[in-house]
Computed example of a mutant assay.
Amino acid sequence: MTTDNRNIVERALARVIETGDIDTLEPLLSADFVHHRPGSSSRTRAEWLAAARPVPMGDMQVEIQHMLAAGDHVVMYSQRRLPGAGPGIAVVDIWRFEAGLIAEAWEIIEPVAQAPANFEWWKSAAHPRGREAPVA
């Protein structure tokens, strides 16, 4: 099942990038599909597809850095760029499969240009002199 799920993700991404048509994913999403992203509410299949349609998928360059599959989950780390849109974004996608369909998805996006600044998040009031928190 793990290999099947990974193959489904790989084929789906190739199809979306090749055609630029996000609707090619619809048959792979379960009827009760839920998409989660930090800072926004969860979306249903119809809501997620509607929100993703304006993204110029056919123009996007996607470099898959890592893809892991275990049980009913597939996790992918990628870097994505749009021509003329700067350095791009780093994305972690997590998909949960149920009965051969994607039932749930989580997505975390970080603009690559902001990555160095985001390394500073752990320097808080608890570490006022700028010392890094001890690593456990």
Rank of each mutant, 00 (worst) to 15 (best):
G88F: 05
V135K: 04
M60W: 01
H73M: 08
V55F: 12
P38I: 04
L82I: 00
D21L: 07
E98C: 13
S41Q: 13
S40I: 12
P83K: 05
E107V: 13
A115R: 09
E132D: 14
G88D: 09
G130M: 02
W121D: 14
W48G: 06
A133L: 11
L28A: 01
R11Y: 07
Q79A: 05
H73R: 07
P87Q: 15
E63T: 10
N5P: 03
L68V: 15
K123V: 15
E107A: 06
A90W: 05
R43V: 04
D59Y: 08
G100I: 01
G88I: 06
G71T: 03
A14S: 10
D32K: 15
E132I: 13
D23P: 02
A46P: 13
R15D: 15
A136C: 08
F33P: 08
G20H: 00
T19F: 04
I8G: 02
E110N: 03
T3A: 15
V91K: 02
R45D: 07
S124P: 13
Q79M: 07
M76S: 12
G20Q: 01
M76Q: 09
A99E: 05
A115F: 11
D59R: 07
H73I: 05
P128E: 03
I22T: 09
L49W: 04
T3Y: 13
Y77D: 08
V55Q: 03
W121Y: 15
P111L: 03
L82E: 01
D72T: 06
Q65R: 14
A90D: 05
L13Q: 02
S42N: 12
V135R: 05
D93G: 12
H66A: 10
E107D: 10
R11H: 14
A136P: 13
F119I: 13
M1H: 09
L49V: 12
H35A: 11
A117Q: 15
A12T: 09
P128R: 03
L29A: 01
A113R: 06
E110C: 01
E63Q: 11
Q114C: 10
G100Y: 04
I102E: 02
A50R: 11
M1F: 09
S42E: 12
R37Q: 14
G84T: 09
S124Q: 12
A50D: 12
V112H: 00
Y77F: 14
G86Q: 07
M67D: 03
D21N: 14
A103E: 10
A14R: 11
I22N: 03
L101V: 07
P87T: 08
H35P: 06
G39L: 00
P56D: 05
L29P: 02
A70D: 08
Y77S: 08
R96T: 12
L82V: 02
H73V: 11
H66I: 05
R53G: 01
V9R: 06
V55C: 00
M1I: 04
H36M: 08
I102H: 00
L28E: 00
W95Y: 15
E120W: 12
A99K: 06
D93K: 02
N5H: 12
G100K: 04
P38C: 11
V135C: 02
L82W: 01
A70T: 09
E104N: 10
A14K: 09
E98R: 13
R6P: 00
A99V: 03
R11S: 11
D21V: 10
Q61T: 15
A117E: 13
R53K: 06
D32N: 15
W121S: 14
D21F: 06
R53F: 01
E132P: 07
E10L: 15
M60D: 00
A85L: 00
D59F: 10
E132W: 12
R53H: 01
L82R: 04
